[in-house]
Simulated assay, not measured.
Amino acid sequence: MTQASSFNVPGTYLFDGDMAMKGYALNKMCFSFNSAANRQAFVADEAAYCRQFGLNEQQTRVIRERDVLGLLAAGGNVYYLAKFAGILGLDVQDLGAAQTGMSKDAFKQMLLEAGK
């Protein structure tokens, strides 16, 4: 896992080909959440749903623990993870806040200041 260096934001990782391969099953599962029926199936039995997509032990654990940094380290792509976050009532800014250890409001303020 390679820590991003060109834009150093704590908790971010370079999503390269190796990470894409590592996270393929996890990202495929999260993409499936575009379907309401799949979201319902996941909520009904998370463990079975993870097995259906072939998640490894690390990926299954971080899904169960709702560990955003762990999901990224396990090869998760934030755009696919947003589908998972939606099931939990979270958005991409919630994920960014969790990545950086900030509150959502502090994260939003950081983004505003960075854009100036």
Rank of each mutant, 00 (worst) to 15 (best):
2 T>G: 07
73 A>W: 02
107 F>N: 11
71 L>P: 02
111 L>D: 04
44 A>C: 02
60 T>K: 07
58 Q>T: 15
39 R>D: 00
81 L>Q: 03
14 L>V: 12
19 M>I: 05
82 A>P: 00
39 R>H: 07
61 R>D: 14
16 D>S: 07
17 G>V: 05
85 A>N: 06
30 C>L: 08
9 V>Y: 10
4 A>I: 10
45 D>A: 09
107 F>T: 00
48 A>W: 05
45 D>K: 08
48 A>R: 12
86 G>E: 11
49 Y>I: 01
53 F>N: 05
48 A>P: 03
50 C>D: 14
75 G>W: 11
85 A>R: 13
50 C>K: 10
67 D>I: 07
80 Y>P: 00
46 E>C: 12
69 L>E: 10
28 K>D: 13
85 A>Q: 11
64 R>Y: 11
110 M>A: 15
42 F>D: 01
8 N>W: 00
78 V>F: 08
99 Q>W: 02
35 S>L: 08
4 A>P: 00
9 V>W: 07
91 D>L: 02
74 A>M: 07
109 Q>C: 00
35 S>A: 12
23 G>W: 10
61 R>A: 15
49 Y>C: 04
113 E>T: 10
7 F>W: 10
103 S>T: 11
103 S>C: 06
89 G>E: 09
26 L>F: 02
42 F>V: 03
102 M>I: 00
107 F>I: 00
81 L>A: 02
45 D>H: 09
66 R>Y: 06
76 G>I: 09
8 N>Y: 06
63 I>K: 06
114 A>H: 10
19 M>V: 07
103 S>H: 05
102 M>S: 09
59 Q>I: 02
38 N>K: 13
43 V>M: 15
64 R>M: 09
45 D>N: 15
111 L>F: 09
52 Q>N: 14
76 G>R: 04
104 K>P: 08
116 K>W: 04
97 A>N: 06
101 G>M: 03
4 A>R: 15
57 E>V: 12
68 V>L: 12
3 Q>R: 13
65 E>K: 08
10 P>D: 13
37 A>K: 14
29 M>T: 08
58 Q>E: 15
111 L>I: 11
47 A>N: 11
108 K>Q: 13
75 G>L: 09
108 K>M: 14
38 N>H: 12
15 F>M: 10
15 F>G: 00
42 F>Q: 01
69 L>S: 14
63 I>Q: 08
55 L>T: 08
105 D>Y: 00
101 G>A: 06
94 D>W: 04
37 A>Y: 05
108 K>P: 00
75 G>E: 09
17 G>P: 02
83 K>L: 02
49 Y>F: 15
37 A>D: 15
67 D>P: 08
86 G>P: 00
87 I>Q: 08
43 V>Q: 15
70 G>D: 04
66 R>L: 09
23 G>A: 09
87 I>S: 05
92 V>N: 03
14 L>R: 12
9 V>F: 11
47 A>V: 12
54 G>K: 07
84 F>N: 01
46 E>V: 12
53 F>H: 06
29 M>I: 01
74 A>S: 12
